[in-house]
Design a protein around this nucleic acid. Structure first.
Lengths: 205, 205
DNA sequence: GCACCGATTAATAAGTCTATTAAATAACAC
DNA sequence: GTGTTATTTAATAGACTTATTAATCGGTGC
């Protein structure tokens, strides 16, 4: 492959990514993608044959990124509290880099969850790994009588709920609290601490 | 207006509601709405002139319903804990009745938040009312030294995040936990307690 | 009966979107 | 250079969509 087509194929992917994230699958047209990429609309089909193909390619990649963004810094050798803090921070940082991703994933999974049947296995494995790790730490704290009875899945589900929602509800927040993009970032940072406190306080007696 | 057209107009609204909730604005066609309502496609336009009109009519109604679903049973004369429990339960019950609503609202607000500019004022008022009430109760508990420093908005935002997410992430839950519709309901009910514990534990010292 | 009314339909204009095809252009081997 | 292949474009077919228009149906008043 020549230098140029490498560029163009990449530019198409980049343009598609930006548009899909902003407007979703249906509301993004191949013509629009081509315009943003700086090429003819037919070229989008030349490289990816169908719009669905192009989308799936991106979707799988992004979906895995999202799943893996819920992870534990293996270096982190603290106990349960430190782990929680670690997970929340890493996840929110990822979301700050990919603010439009959660709503796209949720919308598209809702539209057609068959699409990602083959990704689910990986997702399950990853989820199990996180949950196992958390439950090991939970068991330790529980033996010491420090925390209430809680299971790892609920804990991680709480974290994801709290983290993701402030990104998908951004337009509501901007309006209800009369924020601008700057004060929104301040809000996110304040929420980071609030979420950590809520999760930790929610289990420690 | 005759008996019959009243029926048909209502049937169109009902069909539209069902389809918009399931597939969103763009992926629902007026032809499809007409089919489900049992009439000709032109009739949809006869009653509502444009698809956008029809959608907005539904959207505003549903949006207000959602906002008002976050409410306090005025009968509830307990303290902060009872209020929280009350809010969570009422809200989740509403979501069980309207499981597809949150994702539709979030998607459409994201697509075009101007659409609902005029609803925001009502939303703000309602939000303020809830937050004020919570902060009164928070102040009481705080004077007694029972809870940490927390503001009412964060509290209600935490509740909404935790409640809504388990509905918008349903397809993921079904797959990752290998649930069916029945076990999903069991999960929701278990979550209800978990969420209450998390919120209350998250602020009480 | 007929004239009039709202409700409903059939037909279709006008537009958008995906995908395909054939032709033009660029790159490269020899 | 010529031949060959990959990249890119122009043109367009074909399927949908929304919205409009004119015609039809069914009831009500006179």
């Amino acid at each position: 492959m020549s230098e140029k087509n490498q560029n163009m194929e990449r530019q198409i992917i980049n343009a598609a990514e930006e548009l899909f994230l902003k407007k979703g699958f249906t509301r993004t047209s191949t013509t629009e993608i081509a315009q943003k990429a700086g090429c003819n609309q037919a070229l989008v089909h030349y490289y990816f044959r169908t719009k669905e193909n192009l989308f799936n390619k991106l979707f799988e990649e992004k979906f895995m990124q999202f799943i893996e963004s819920i992870s534990i810094d293996e270096e982190c050798k603290g106990g349960l509290k430190e782990r929680i803090e670690n997970i929340v921070k890493i996840h929110i940082d990822f979301l700050c880099q990919n603010p439009g991703l959660p709503l796209l994933l949720l919308s598209e999974v809702n539209r057609n969850s068959d699409r990602i049947g083959h990704i689910f296995e990986k997702m399950k494995l990853h989820a199990m790994h996180i949950v196992d790790m958390l439950e090991t730490e939970i068991a330790k704290e529980r033996e010491k009588g420090l925390i209430r009875n809680v299971n790892g899945f609920d804990m991680i589900f709480n974290i994801i709920s709290l983290n993701v929602f402030m990104f998908i509800a951004k337009p509501l927040l901007l309006n209800i609290r009369e924020m601008n993009d700057e004060s929104y970032i301040t809000f996110i940072n304040a929420r980071k601490d609030e979420i950590i406190k809520t999760i930790i306080g929610g289990i420690y007696l």
